[in-house]
Design a protein around this nucleic acid. Structure first.
Length: 477
RNA sequence: GCCUCAAUAGCUCAGUUGGUUAGAGCGGCGGACUGUUAAUCCGUAGGUCCAAGGUUCAAGUCCUUGUUGAGGCGCCA
């Protein structure tokens, strides 16, 4: 019995004129003679040449789109011009045929919305196989980057007893059966009798726990699923997404920004260096799609050129106050083109961020030192007593990919902010104890993993860079 | 949560001012084809026009409600 060789290996280290065994799915069957076979190990196919008269008609009939085949044959130099080598089929076994009268996928461009409804099949397409190979690679690069720099990967809880993380609506977790939860004397659900003895939720952020790690291990990061019950209906939000949250001791906001920029560039470079073929498929797909678009709707640069440009240039760094001033002296502001007001103390709207990133600077922008009133309680107060050491990294086409801050390490400042924002210290007693016992300056950020994958793959909807998207009203598969 | 748009063949779409039997390309099916590269060529089948109600002599087309999807806003990552 011959051992199967993966197509990636065949193409990388070809053993010409030897008989080999490959297995995979049919991407195309042309001229009753040429099979393009793909096994997922690479975006590239191997061509199999079938002398159809040598095989029974019933077998040849089963070689349809996305049928699964095992093929033994001699690997030779190709006579055709589209590929370097090909396999002359000696034996063909149909492992799984496809009934094409009912199979929904077709060998042509189909809409992202349609394919999203076929999440169990869409990974077989060129676009999605490329996206999910790259998603894997970005995840690997995240771990490699931090490991190589001496960070420890820390697993923070998925179920949390704290509802004060302040990052959005939470999904409740309970072992009670619906409508059978015991009530207390006030008629409220008595969570003391629930599994954990208290009300619990799915985590919206691992940051507060990551701070525990940073203040013991020095440098840690979390990388895990995160849940937000916001009914966000946009191409940039998911109810279940993955977040990367490094947290570092003895670091200030500038170290934090340096890390965010270096880390982002590392991830992009890792894909540019290791997945050029998948990137090219995605690059060409976008170029083709944009052929029919008006010039002003097209991207200023192709996908690969955009990624190169981002890693080759410094991110723009401006303070929130500078951003406000730049916006107020901008053409669209003067001409009244912005829908929302630009005013110190108010958060930058999407349209403002987009103008700064896409029109003014044309590259990623880090905005730092936001007004304290629009930011979370744990962010470190600046000396001006008006702003906090918080930063957002904004990317073209996506907006906020990273949000971070230097954390408030001074107990009295922290307690004051918590009181102002009505956060009870009893609930976060362990968090304030980190300041009471051996605290130190520290900082960190959260990167939306899918948003980064969105940027690197050039996809336009976040639901298309996670295998099984969870959005309001949708939890199929 | 708010706003806007859309839903017609398996897919992507066209369908004029409300007017005869709802069209195309791709895909499927049948056939041809021994160097194809989104193969090509010939033939063929395929429709609850999202759902319910309404206006009208007449509705794919107009109105109401609902469902689903997309986009924008807010929230954020």
């Amino acid at each position: 019995m011959k051992r199967r060789i993966e197509i990636a290996e065949v193409l990388k280290n070809p053993t010409l004129n030897e008989s080999i065994l490959v297995k995979g799915w049919v991407r195309a069957f042309r001229s009753n003679r040429f099979i393009a076979l793909n096994d997922g190990s690479t975006i590239n196919n191997i061509q199999v040449v079938v002398d159809f008269e040598k095989f029974p008609e019933s077998l040849v009939k089963n070689i349809g789109f996305h049928a699964c085949l095992a093929i033994t044959g001699k690997l030779v130099e190709s006579q055709g011009s589209g590929q370097a080598m090909e396999i002359l089929a000696e034996e063909i076994e149909v492992l799984g045929s496809t009934n094409l009268e009912t199979y929904p996928l077709q060998p042509k461009a189909q809409s992202m919305e349609f394919l999203r409804e076929k999440a169990h099949l869409r990974m077989r397409t060129n676009t999605f196989s490329a996206v999910f190979r790259i998603r894997h690679a970005v995840a690997f690069a995240v771990n490699k980057y931090f490991n190589d720099k001496g960070y420890y990967y820390m697993h923070t809880p998925i179920i949390t007893g704290s509802d004060a993380e302040g990052a959005g609506e939470m999904f409740h977790v309970t072992a009670f059966e619906t409508n059978k939860a015991p009530l207390d004397e006030n008629g409220e659900v008595d969570y003391k009798k629930d599994f954990f003895g208290k009300a619990t939720n799915l985590t919206v952020s691992g940051q507060l726990q990551a701070e525990i790690g940073a203040l013991a291990l020095g440098k840690v990061y979390t990388f895990g699923p995160t849940f937000r019950a916001e009914k966000s209906n946009t191409s940039r939000h998911l109810a279940e997404f993955w977040m990367i949250e490094p947290e570092i001791a003895f670091a200030d906001i500038h170290d934090d920004m340096d890390l965010a920029e270096d880390f982002s560039k590392y991830l992009i470079n890792y894909i540019l260096d290791n997945y050029p073929d998948d990137l090219k498929i995605l690059n060409d797909r976008i170029a083709k799609m944009e052929q029919n678009m008006k010039k002003e709707e097209r991207r200023p640069m192709g996908l690969i050129d955009t990624l190169r440009f981002v890693v080759d240039n410094d991110f723009e760094r401006i303070t929130y106050t500078e951003a406000i001033n730049i916006l107020r002296s901008s053409k669209p502001y003067k001409k009244g083109r912005f829908e929302y007001e630009v005013e110190w103390g108010k958060d930058l709207q999407s349209e403002h961020e987009r103008w700064l990133v896409e029109k003014k600077f044309k590259k990623p922008v880090i905005v730092v030192d936001y007004p304290k009133d629009i930011k979370a309680f744990y962010m470190r107060m600046n000396d001006d007593d008006k702003t906090v050491a918080a930063m957002d990294v904004l990317f073209p086409g996506i907006g906020e990919v990273i949000g971070g801050s230097q954390r408030e390490e001074r107990l009295d400042f922290l307690q004051k902010r918590m009181a102002e924002m009505d956060i009870h210290e009893e609930e976060l007693w362990w968090y304030t104890e980190l300041r009471k016992f051996g605290g130190c300056p520290h900082a960190g950020f959260g990167m939306g993993f899918e948003r980064m994958v969105l940027f690197i793959t050039g996809m336009t909807n976040i639901r298309d860079v996670i295998p099984f998207p969870r959005t309001p009203g949708s939890a199929e598969f």
